[in-house]
Design a protein around this nucleic acid. Structure first.
Length: 286
DNA sequence: TTGTGTTTTATTGCCTCC
DNA sequence: GGAGGCAATAAAACACAA
């Protein structure tokens, strides 16, 4: 038997003329009458009753109701309960009694209504929280996707530019190496390098641009460049280190920079460790 | 009308607080 | 230990499509 509540024997209620018990059956425990009275009688189970004697009032209301059916509250009752719930969703005993009297309900019914109302509110609140979290997640996902796409686009641009650069460099290496007065740098290469120089100047003495930390690249002077590792077997090979202006201290004011461009063929031709001088500023560093 | 899904009312058992 | 809250559940009431 549950503690803290009054119980009574259902069989005695069904048979007897106790108006208080009948009053209760008329509203709070209709289900037991309409559906399972027989089983209750048979089993002599005990059912919860009122918490206190002062809950037994409003006889008039219940005498008007058919005791056979579980009834829903009227819209006026629900409206008042909703208003009360908005003010405070917990129900202290005094308010419960007042509300019950005002609405013509059992205090127990008011308590149950608040209980169920809190449960509904909690469910709705969970749904709202879920919606907020989901929209936040969707927004982040969308941002992430666009960043990934942008990253892919930039990567493919880098690859494309590197390919062009390799072609140009290969063409250059195929030509006799003369001094820059007699054999000036082809305009395309000059443009590429001039862009790099501009980048270098604008980025300060230390190249800091990073497209993808995981992507292969070689260092061209102190400026970061991005040669795919797959292409190292071609005319452009990675260098572990290239002598920079800062390193050797020479600053002749030239706007071009040192770059290593050497193919396997070139290495074979010139031998390991030999400096390949192109414009006097391309070094092979083993 | 009937089957089915949803909402509302109420019960039960367990838990926490005082 | 009593009172009250909550989760889970039952079942009536209701809504609605077929």
């Amino acid at each position: 038997m549950e503690s803290g509540r009054l119980y009574f024997d259902t069989t005695s209620v069904c048979r007897g003329n106790n108006s208080m018990n009948m009053l209760y059956l008329g509203n709070a425990d209709l289900s037991f009458r309409g559906r399972s009275m027989m089983s209750m009688e048979e089993g002599s189970k005990r059912r919860p009753f009122f918490s206190s004697p002062d809950e037994l009032y409003d006889e008039e209301y219940y005498e008007e109701q058919s005791p056979e059916k579980k009834r829903r509250l009227t819209s006026e009752q629900v409206h008042l309960l909703e208003k009360s719930f908005e003010e405070e969703n917990k129900l202290e005993p005094e308010r419960k009694t007042q509300l019950a009297k005002k609405l013509g309900l059992q205090p127990r019914q008011v308590a149950v209504w608040f209980q169920n109302r809190r449960a509904r509110w909690k469910t709705k609140q969970l749904e709202r929280d879920y919606d907020v979290l989901k929209s936040s997640y969707d927004s982040l996902l969308s941002t992430y996707d666009s960043i990934v796409k942008e990253n892919e686009k930039l990567k493919s641009e880098v690859v494309s530019l590197n390919e062009k650069l390799q072609v140009q460099a290969k063409e250059m290496l195929g030509e006799p190496l003369l001094d820059k007065e007699a054999n000036p740098l082809p305009i395309e290469i000059a443009q590429i390098f001039s862009i790099k120089v501009d980048d270098h100047m604008s980025a300060g003495s230390v190249g800091s641009a990073v497209v993808d930390e995981g992507s292969p690249h070689v260092v061209v002077d102190s400026v970061d460049s991005y040669f795919p590792a797959d292409n190292y077997g071609g005319c452009v090979a990675p260098i572990e280190r290239v002598q920079s202006e800062e390193d050797d201290g020479s600053d002749d004011g030239r706007s071009y920079f040192n770059v290593f461009v050497a193919s396997e063929t070139e290495q074979q031709n010139h031998g390991e460790g030999e400096a390949l001088n192109w414009w006097g500023n391309m070094y092979y560093v083993a």
